[in-house]
Nucleic acid binder design. Structure first.
Lengths: 263, 263
DNA sequence: CGAGGGGTTGATCTCCTTCAACGGAGGTGG
DNA sequence: CCACCTCCGTTGAAGGAGATCAACCCCTCG
């Protein structure tokens, strides 16, 4: 599937868009960029001029401390835009890196701007998307700030599982997660050594296995409980949303899904 | 100053708006609500129908764990909208609470929607505002996940200081912060006892005093260093932004500041 | 074959928590 | 006006979750 279609699919999870709006998104032009594992896509201080749509692989945003310690603040899987907010705030002060070999589509801001100004509902969909991001950030604060190691790690796996499923990349109990234990440590604010021990506990206590970039959750309910996980913050369940138009209803508009090849 | 004007002022820190757009924001109608300290304004599971502009006092968003522990995920001071994203995502799954006695203006989503659809640049300003929020969230993850207690607390004080200054509520080294040590603990993922000890260290080591809801920073540079604080993530320094219009430039538009009383 | 990255294990250390108690300020009611 | 309560800040002692340090193994890859 082409990256634009992946991205559209993701937007449609939460936003209702007309056929015309969908076409506009599908017809975005960008340059495909392959990124090696551990290479940074964006670095602090940059003023970026394009946004990145992840089309393959795993990408993460992180902050680096002076002592070298790094803290991942979010993961982005295929279909996610790791950078969309850069349209309204192009100056970044964090890094985005490829966790494993990845492919991204770089879409110039110029085009996204046009989209936003021509199609207000697309701007709102982008904003909504950013809101989900923020909601995940907030949950991570709670995760890292107020939970024990085992719960943090369990929570992370639950999140990635559900997001992968929603993105059509697997099921919540069996999905690819190309991160090392060390990267999980960076995401959960723990050390690799301790992550290792906890993952062994989780393996022993049945709920999951994590090996070679694949997560297999044997007992979803247990893992939910261990991670104190509640899915609402991902905003996946609600039906896609759209603000009622100014003049009244959206009568006469079509919201059918546009097949990806129809561009 | 009326809350709408405070809010506008905040938006103008980062977004450039025409006189007309500014007027539209100033003419928002809402209901003023006084909230006692420790009372919740929004609770998880709610589907809110209005957004809250903080006009006086201190407000915070938090998550509650099953064991009763709570994690604050952000503070909102006068002028901030603690809830703006609810326009595009009205279902909330966290709480918003008044840290001290506070006054908020509740603006119905209906009006904000109208604003967004009639004035695309306002939608973008709102999105930009949400992006700042997200940026702060991300920084908090790094703060809580990768720093020691002293640095976390120092960082928090730096942030609130700068934000207060930007909002015209004091200077970065002398500002009101009506939180208890216990609430600082909830924000930094520490225990009240430990926060107390660390604050004493900070007092002894000169950089700051924090008593009776007022922070006095005696040595800003030291505090920055201790907290490993870098202000860019607040997006305060850059000049206000505006996407270039579709047709071309913004020729003929006025971006002068509208006096608050001129509505 | 050697190098390097990732996973695993054990021993030790430490930052922070937990538990428990006390003092002071402010508010309330007798 | 004082007794009383509650919330907040403060202090001490003990305990624990996780960090740190240092190996070692396995696999892949050049």
């Amino acid at each position: 599937m082409q990256p634009q279609a992946q991205f559209l699919q993701r937007l449609l999870l939460r936003s209702k868009l007309t056929v015309e709006e969908q076409r506009a998104i599908l017809s975005l032009q960008g340059t495909v960029q392959r990124v090696q594992a551990h290479r940074d896509i964006v670095s602090p201080g940059e003023c970026v001029e394009s946004a990145c749509l992840v089309s393959r692989g795993l990408v993460a945003r992180y902050d680096q401390m002076l002592n070298g310690r790094r803290q991942l603040t979010s993961f982005y899987i295929a279909g996610d835009a790791c950078d969309l907010h850069s349209v309204v705030a192009p100056k970044v002060n964090w890094s985005i890196t490829a966790i494993c070999d990845a492919t991204v589509l770089r879409v110039p801001h110029e085009q996204l701007r046009q989209l936003c100004l021509r199609h207000p509902h697309i701007a709102l969909a982008f904003w909504r998307d950013g809101t989900v991001d923020a909601s995940i950030f907030a949950k991570w604060i709670a995760n890292v700030g107020a939970k024990q190691a085992k719960a943090r790690i369990a929570h992370l796996f639950c999140e990635i599982g559900l997001r992968s499923e929603a993105a059509g990349l697997g099921s919540r109990t069996n999905f690819e997660f190309m991160a090392t234990q060390s990267q999980v440590a960076d995401a959960t604010g723990l050390t690799p050594v301790h992550v290792n021990r906890v993952i062994q506990e989780l393996r022993a206590g049945e709920p999951l296995s994590f090996r070679g970039g694949r997560v297999l959750i044997k007992n979803w309910e247990t893992l939910l409980a261990v991670g104190e996980f509640s899915a609402d913050y991902l905003m996946l369940s609600a039906s896609p949303d759209r603000l009622p138009g100014v003049g009244g209803m959206d009568s006469g508009m079509s919201f059918a899904s546009v097949p990806a090849n129809q561009v």
